[in-house]
């Protein structure tokens, strides 16, 4: 295999425990170059532990990790300039301005201040460059943290919850920025609790729980394989649940919040059968989402 075709990241049976807590349990994942990979899972699932082991910041108890063909730990000076890391807590140099912070980070990689200016521009912070890092808004902090991650133009980018604490517009902007990064060939590994975002951004996702990989595939494939199918929501009263249950292609019927919910793997057939029984304009079609798959795997919280 040539270096270009070889995977960017390979985890082989990686395990790590903190006392009784299994933070990673025999995790094996291979991430290709240029892939946008999402690590999903509830709080405490082991996402940060896993990502930090890949970065070489924490050591696995057993198993091996390879990044760009190299071992990330012990501290590997050949590898470090080729990866960019945003830690879950954003880190900024004390009492510096955004620009000064980035100039300092650039210098850590032996790069001139002009690189810092480019990174500032990339995340749209040029106008806030002279504001102290303690005074900029939460969303700007997040963007500055990402600028710090990208300042040295790394090949592989690790982002731990980059979209946490962002307003919807900032989240969308950031999503666009991440897509642009993927478009220029970066490998991106990121964690998030926003499943809608993961569904649209990620080539593949791994769903973790208690350190174990419960599912690993593209969002589309995971949704298709889950068999959750489509949900058709009809205002109650148009059709009795009994009638609905007899329709061609319906797998399940429930009444939720005064609405009749039909589950099906063949939405078109059910819609055809419904025609006449109910006004199709009132029928809302909800395809299964990554969130549905996730909740089914993790076990939806019983409200």
């Amino acid at each position: 295999m040539s270096p270009i075709d070889s995977p960017a990241i390979v985890l082989d049976a990686v395990s790590k425990s903190y006392g009784e807590v299994r933070a990673a349990d025999e995790v094996s994942i291979s991430i290709g170059r240029g892939e946008f990979f999402g690590l999903l899972g509830p709080n405490g699932a082991g996402k940060t532990t896993l990502i930090e082991m890949i970065e070489g910041l924490r050591l696995p108890d057993t198993g091996t990790i390879t990044v760009l063909g190299m071992a990330p730990a012990p501290r590997n000076l050949d590898l470090l300039p080729r990866i960019g890391v945003q830690t879950q807590r954003s880190a900024f140099f004390t009492r510096l301005t955004a620009r000064e912070h980035l100039v300092t980070v650039a210098a850590l990689y032996g790069l001139p201040p002009a690189t810092a200016e480019k990174a500032l521009d990339l995340v749209g912070l040029t106008d806030s460059g002279n504001v102290r890092v303690t005074r900029i808004s939460g969303g700007q902090r997040q963007r500055l943290a990402i600028a710090s991650t990208l300042v040295h133009d790394p090949e592989v980018v690790f982002l731990d919850e980059p979209t946490a604490a962002l307003d919807p517009e900032a989240r969308r902007d950031l999503g666009q920025m991440l897509r642009n990064l993927k478009a220029i060939g970066k490998t991106i590994v990121y964690t998030t609790h926003h499943l809608d975002e993961a569904q649209t951004l990620c080539d593949r996702v791994a769903i973790l729980s208690a350190g174990r990989v419960l599912a690993l595939d593209s969002p589309r494939e995971l949704i298709a394989r889950s068999g959750i199918g489509t949900r058709l929501v009809i205002p109650a009263g148009r059709l009795s649940p009994e009638q609905a249950g007899t329709l061609d292609g319906v797998n399940g019927v429930a009444v939720e919040d005064g609405m009749l919910v039909l589950r099906t793997a063949h939405a078109a057939r059910v819609l055809a059968a419904l025609d006449g029984a109910a006004d199709l304009d009132d029928v809302e079609t909800r395809p299964a989402t990554l969130e549905d798959v996730y909740l089914e795997l993790i076990g939806a919280p019983q409200a």
């Binding site: 300039p81 807590r89 880190a91 900024f92 850590l108």
Partner: peptide, 20 residues
């Protein structure tokens, strides 16, 4: 103070992850 603060603020990580 500098050492404690840089470690707590994850700044030592940023340095640790650079070739410095």
């Amino acid at each position: 103070f500098t050492l404690m603060q840089w470690r707590n603020d994850d700044l030592l990580r940023i340095i640790r992850l650079s070739p410095t």
